[in-house]
Design a binder for these strands. Structure first.
Lengths: 194, 194
DNA sequence: TATAAATGAATGACAATTCATTCATTTATA
DNA sequence: TATAAATGAATGAATTGTCATTCATTTATA
């Protein structure tokens, strides 16, 4: 087994364990067991428990950014892009449930390095929205009397709250598609210039 | 000093300490110090560390519900009610910054009892929104082709994400009023029937 | 004085981290 | 080619530090 394989194997185990028990309740031995590896092996690949979490943010969010950008680049109309973002984001939450749980829970923690993540890496993800908004405003598709920064947060927050519902209550009351459609609808009819 | 005074004193200290360090990084001795009380005294008023957190949810969210309901009851138009909710919610986040941080962080944690709180007590708070939406739909003020449950979550999520910005980055880029106004504006022009 | 409330040092459980040891694989030597 | 030496990844038991919780003692109150 190659070194990189074991690195990813441990990360995948960590996503699962952190997702189920939360960072603080997760034991290194849980992750080791899940990864089918000795406790000590983890320290050959990561500096400490917290480093696993940060690496997880770094690498996994990076993958999400690549994926969602690819999906959006299929569209040229900013209204459609917003819908595609919503659809894709919610789909990711369902497909990568455990990762979504980790991000939901742990990105809210206090602690300076986490805050920096919110301000850096994670911001990159959310800023995909503000780029769409900004371009849409330049093209006069979206109202210019609203601040892109506020729209961005409102839109992402709306999606994030739907995700939370699914994570906490797995019997989905609303389907992926209707959620993405209705949220986009609410926002578009709010931000599209008459 | 009356018993109830010390109960609240410890709770206030816990809000501060949990808000700053998060539940898991907070030590009982931190709370005791902040409350100007001996470590052991805390166990005369609470069963354990976790009980402090649950009591905090129960009692403090209860107060918020009372406050915000009072503010909303001043209005009769559901559009205005929604704006008042936004304004009041964001004002609370600024005035009770530490409590807001605790709720942001800890309501996202996994663990069954926390989840039940999200599904019960906290839901009462958010459901103030769905009541407004529902009444507004009955009065034909709001579109009926959108599901109240989705609007509720989208609206709350939008506010919650703005709160997060303020909590993480205290140099407010947007004012309280403009945030409440723009978010209400986005939503109203999305959900008000033409 | 008797009872209740408060104290804070001591306890013990729990996990993160360390590190001496093992062992499969690779490289050097004859 | 066969044998020996070196490597370093992997192991998991032992170490260590960290608190939550307890409880014998002290202090306040009625």
């Amino acid at each position: 087994m190659k070194k990189s394989d074991k690195h990813q194997k441990i990360l995948n185990a960590a996503i699962k364990v952190f997702g189920q028990k939360g960072f603080f309740n997760a034991r290194i031995s849980d992750i080791a067991k899940e990864a089918d590896v000795a406790d000590g092996t983890i320290y050959l690949y990561f500096n400490n428990k917290y480093d696993i979490l940060l690496t997880l943010f770094e690498e996994e969010i990076g993958k999400l950014i690549v994926e969602i950008k690819a999906a959006i680049s299929q569209k040229t109309d900013q209204r459609e892009m917003l819908y595609v973002f919503a659809l894709h984001h919610l789909r990711l939450v369902i497909e990568k449930k455990e990762l979504a749980e980790v991000l939901q829970m742990e990105l809210r923690q206090s602690g300076e390095s986490i805050k920096e993540y919110r301000l850096n890496k994670f911001a990159d993800y959310v800023n995909i929205i503000s780029e769409i908004i900004h371009t849409g405003q330049e093209n006069n598709i979206f109202r210019r009397d609203l601040q892109a920064g506020i729209i961005k947060r409102a839109f992402f927050g709306a999606l994030d709250e739907m995700s939370r519902l699914w994570i906490l209550n797995p019997n989905h009351t609303y389907t992926l598609e209707e959620s993405a459609e209705e949220i986009s609808d609410i926002f578009l009819n709010g931000i599209v210039a008459d």
